[in-house]
Each structure stands twice: as structure tokens, then as C-alpha cells.
């Protein structure tokens, strides 16, 4: 199935204009304006509690901004329902922890936006198995998800996002719990996806990974401290300002 192209190439994949949001009266993020063009690879960094995950939820329409507007592919984010265009991997998988369900059944869900009320075709299943293969989980296809380690679960969820064949992939600290060698392989995979023209938004606490792979960095601590090319970010003092310290050293993790 090919992605829809019902709007022009210069419509931003993600657009936030003057966005502010707070779970209580205190804003978690404010004064956020940014646009992500199709095909970009963006890393979002910031200290713990800087509002990274909240920003991601605003981008995806899971939260509605208190002020300003959030758009996905030109549509107000909370109304956007073409799920086949977005893939998403959460930090701590929100998924049920006890349900009897196999890895393949989880990855299958990536195809649901494409099949709607219908059944998966042989082609859909081929995409599912390919995604399983890509994350090296083919041997675990018929295992119960509850039997997996944290890293294996995370791989299954990455496979689900891949199986969706989305134009925009959003990762919220996707490598938490994944072993070190696999982390490197995972970032290589993101590079390949990006080379194929997929828009990648990566929220990461590992600054080294972001500066090594992303083209553009967004540095956040309640408000934007930096938004620009990775090279400029490395040379700037944005990090120190965002983290509120002058001792932060890039790549030291």
C-alpha cells in the first residue's frame, strides 16, 4: 500500500505554532513553534522532566494544546486519523503487560490502519514478517509477549511501527532496555529509513546518539533552547542553558 499524498510536498509533517500545555496550571511546555518537513531526521533532547514526551504527545495529537495549534500533515493533530501515515514507539510501552498475545500478533497491529475492518492479506502478512526479520525477532514470532525481556519487547514494538510503513516515525526513547550492540544497529536502521525518505522524530536522552545521527536538533526545557542543524547545536551553548549547567559534556553518557 502506498502512502497517501493528498497534500503538497511543502506541507509540514508536524507543525506547532505558539503551543503551550500544562497538566495543571503550571505549563510543562510553552512558546513552542516549530515545523518538521517531510524527510527530516530530528532529534529532541532535554533534561529529565523538560517536557519531551509531552511535546511528542502534542505533536501526535494525543494531547491538545492549551494555547496555540498543533497540526499533523496540515490537519489539526487531534483530528488527524490517517493512522497509516504515522508510526510510534513509546518509551515505556503503554501496552497491557499480562495479555496472552504473540509477538507476531503485536506486529500485526501495525497493519490495522491499512486494513481497517477487513482482514490482513498475504501482502500484509509479508510486511509483518519482514518487519520481524528487520528487528531480528523472527525466532520469537510465536512467543508470548509476556515472556520477553524488556529489550525484546521494545524490538517487537519497533517492528510494529515498521510494519505500518508510515511516512512519519516517532520514537520516544526507543532503546531503553535494549542491549548496547543492538542500540547501534537500531540507529543504523533509523539512518536507512531516513535515507528512504521517511521523516524521523527521535526523542532521546543519549545526546551522543542524537548528535551522531540526527540532521537537526531540538533542545527543550519547557521552552525551545535550540532548533537548528546538529553541527550548530554541538558548537552552541544551548545544552548548557537547557540543562542549567556548564558542565554538560556532549557524548558523555
Amino acid at each position: 500500500m502506498t502512502p497517501h499524498h493528498d497534500n503538497t510536498a511543502d506541507t509540514p509533517a508536524i507543525e506547532l505554532a505558539d503551543v503551550a500545555f500544562g497538566y495543571t496550571a503550571t505549563p510543562v511546555v510553552e512558546d513552542i513553534s516549530l515545523a518538521v518537513s517531510p524527510g527530516e531526521y530530528i532529534g529532541v533532547v532535554g533534561p529529565n522532566g523538560s517536557g519531551k514526551s509531552t511535546l511528542m504527545k502534542l505533536m501526535l495529537g494525543l494531547l491538545r494544546p492549551d494555547r496555540g495549534r498543533a497540526r499533523l500533515f496540515g490537519v489539526p493533530a487531534h483530528q488527524f486519523d490517517t493512522g497509516s501515515r504515522i508510526g510510534y514507539v513509546a518509551q515505556h510501552a503503554s501496552a497491557s503487560k499480562e495479555m496472552p498475545i504473540t509477538v507476531r500478533e503485536v506486529v500485526k497491529m501495525g497493519r490495522f490502519p491499512h486494513v481497517g475492518f477487513g482482514q490482513l492479506s498475504a501482502d500484509d502478512w509479508a510486511v509483518v514478517d519482514e518487519a520481524l526479520d528487520t528487528v531480528g525477532m523472527s525466532a520469537f514470532a510465536d512467543r508470548r509477549v509476556t515472556e520477553l525481556s524488556g529489550g525484546q519487547r521494545q524490538r517487537a514494538f519497533i517492528a510494529r511501527a515498521l510494519a505500518g510503513e508510515a511516512e512519519l516515525l516517532v520514537f520516544d526513547e526507543p532503546t531503553v532496555g535494549v542491549d548496547i550492540e543492538s542500540v547501534a544497529a537500531f540507529y543504523d536502521l533509523l539512518d536507512v529509513l531516513h535515507d528512504d525518505g521517511i521523516t524521523v522524530v527521535l526523542i532521546e536522552h543519549d545526546l551522543g546518539a542524537v548528535t551522531e545521527h540526527a540532521e537537526r536538533v531540538i533542545c527543550l526545557n519547557r521552552e525551545l533552547h535550540f532548533d537548528g542543524p546538529t553541527a550548530e547545536f554541538v558548537d552552541s551553548d544551548a545544552l548548557a542553558r537547557a540543562f542549567g549547567t556548564t558542565t554538560a559534556v556532549l557524548g558523555d553518557d
Binding site: 501482502d123 528487520t134 531480528g136
Partner: peptide
């Protein structure tokens, strides 16, 4: 436990024929 495969970007998951 079965052997876990490598994450292999080489097999491109985004290519489809239709």
C-alpha cells in the same frame, strides 16, 4: 530461548511492490 537475530537495516522494511 531462541537465538535473537541482529537488527538488520539491510533488509529494507519500507519497500513494497504495490
Amino acid at each position: 530461548t531462541p537465538e535473537m537475530g541482529a537488527i538488520s537495516p539491510n533488509s529494507d522494511p519500507t519497500t513494497t511492490d504495490d
